[in-house]
């Protein structure tokens, strides 16, 4: 906080809460470096020393757990990764209706304006 300095324990908790509600979500970011945006190695999709992160063992992307074609929404649906996707529950429930197979139809995903 630039405008106030938290002094007692309650003030520190209040400030932390306010920051958490207003601030960006860093997910797996290193908390000690969150302000600088230094990110942990993403875990769960693929390890960055296995073949690819960018490519799978065959040299393509289809075999990756989250191929780049799907990272718009599969990260968030499948892995809970806080990817930036339209609000699937309330405001844009049908934004992927025309996309039955992400690998093939990803171009048909609607553009949603907030």
């Amino acid at each position: 906080m630039g405008s106030l300095k938290a002094i007692n324990r309650k003030a520190k908790r209040v400030a932390l809460q306010a920051e958490a509600e207003r601030g960006d979500l860093f997910a797996l970011a290193d908390p000690s470096a969150s302000a600088g945006g230094k990110v942990y190695h993403p875990m769960g999709c693929t390890l960055n020393f296995t073949p690819g992160w960018e490519i799978d063992i065959s040299g393509g992307t289809a075999g990756l757990c989250q191929p780049v074609e799907r990272d718009l929404f599969d990260c968030y649906l499948g892995c809970g990764w806080p990817a930036q996707v339209p609000d699937h529950l309330n405001n844009a429930p049908d934004w992927t209706d025309k996309c039955s197979s992400a690998a093939n139809d990803w171009r048909k995903i609607d553009i949603v304006f907030p």
């Binding site: 405008s3 300095k5 938290a6 002094i7 007692n8 309650k10 003030a11 908790r13 209040v14």
Partner: peptide, 21 residues
């Protein structure tokens, strides 16, 4: 300069722009 905020019971020191606001 400090503010004791009610009802939370938090204590903040005022500094810079916050103090002026």
């Amino acid at each position: 300069d400090f503010w004791y905020l009610v009802p939370s019971g938090s204590i903040f020191a005022l500094e810079g722009i916050g103090k002026d606001v």
